[in-house]
């Protein structure tokens, strides 16, 4: 128990220290860093990114990966926008349908993976291309601009530095934390990811667990897409096209084991804060935005190395 606590401490402490140091440096160098508006801007970009990270985290937890997170997000985004603009659906009806599309996409990924026994990477690479194809085929790259004013307002309004958008990721993070820590399916998902053979021998259903992880991943990607539409105020077909790196970076930097079985909701959350901080710092320092890509790559490598080092140190390698 003591060792476990130390492990958990190591996992976030590095990130927390990095965030505090980064924020301190930024507030010294850039006087407008700590303004209410800048924090609001950072928190807005944080919302979508966190859900994207969670969408990948659940598949990593079961020992799979989902290349289609971004493609599914894009498809859900334009479906969500199209339902409201073309068919005039109210927001409260469009949201559940959009989430359902995400879950259905995840179900396809999961079923194909378990039924064929093929590497989830290649299955989701193929479905990603198919989802993107449907997205582009329907929209021909033209966004839906006429979003309901209530949705746009939800995407823009704030209380002090806190955007309304933040409500969704906070609730989702709490639910996911509960899911992995306290519920039977959540524990089963991680148990299966940790040791598939042992999990099956103790009666955890293989197919159901993997499919569940993919459905959850699709659901989270859909939630991210809905928030992205609210944030942008229009349903862009390009939503999700740049989620691939982010989706892996957040959980991996947050301490998720690539082999499955271990994820950290709080770690992922801290990782996304760190990423938002870096992006914001680049903007404030007027550095080339290309540095973000470079630094994310470097951060992933550093995190992988750190995870490895931690595993060796605690003897779980």
């Amino acid at each position: 128990m003591n060792q476990l606590r130390r492990l958990v401490l190591v996992e976030w402490s590095g990130l927390a220290v990095a965030i505090v140091i980064g924020a301190a440096i930024l507030s010294m160098l850039a006087p407008n860093f700590l303004t209410e508006f800048n924090i609001y801007v950072m928190l807005r970009s944080f919302c979508v990114a966190l859900l994207v990270g969670f969408a990948q985290m659940v598949t990593l937890g079961v020992g799979q990966m989902n290349i289609a997170v971004g493609a599914l997000g894009g498809l859900v985004a334009i479906a969500f926008g199209g339902m409201m603009e073309v068919y005039g659906l109210p927001i409260l009806a469009a949201v559940p349908v959009a989430l359902l599309i995400g879950a259905a996409g995840g179900l396809i990924n999961g079923l194909l993976t378990v039924r064929t026994g093929i590497n989830g990477f290649i299955i989701t690479l193929a479905t990603a291309s198919a989802f993107t194809g449907i997205n582009l085929g329907i929209t021909e790259s033209i966004p839906f601009y006429k979003m309901p004013p209530a949705l746009v307002a939800f995407g823009e309004q704030r209380i002090g530095a806190f955007p309304y958008l933040l409500i969704a990721p906070v609730i989702v993070a709490a639910l996911l934390g509960l899911f992995f820590a306290r519920t039977v399916p959540g524990r089963q998902l991680l148990a299966y990811g940790g040791n598939a053979q042992a999990a099956e021998l103790s009666g955890i259903p293989r197919e159901r667990t993997i499919v569940m992880a993919h459905v959850l991943s699709g659901l989270l990607a859909a939630a991210a897409a809905i928030l992205a539409v609210a944030q942008l105020g229009s349903a862009q077909p390009s939503i999700g096209s740049d989620w691939l790196l982010l989706s892996f970076a957040a959980p991996i930097i947050g301490g998720a084991a690539l082999t499955g079985g271990h994820v950290s909701v709080l770690g992922t959350l801290f990782a996304v804060i760190l990423i938002a901080l870096i992006e914001n710092g680049m903007v404030l320092a007027k550095v080339d935005p290309y540095w973000v890509q470079f630094l994310l790559g470097a951060l992933i490598l550093a995190a992988v190395w750190l995870n490895r080092w931690r595993a060796v140190r605690t003897g779980t390698a």
Binding site: T127, I134, G137
Partner: peptide
């Protein structure tokens, strides 16, 4: 625009 869908489906079938 539809090319991506075709390529994805073909990859699925091949897989």
């Amino acid at each position: 625009f539809w090319l991506q869908l075709f390529l994805g489906l073909i990859l699925l079938v091949a897989v």
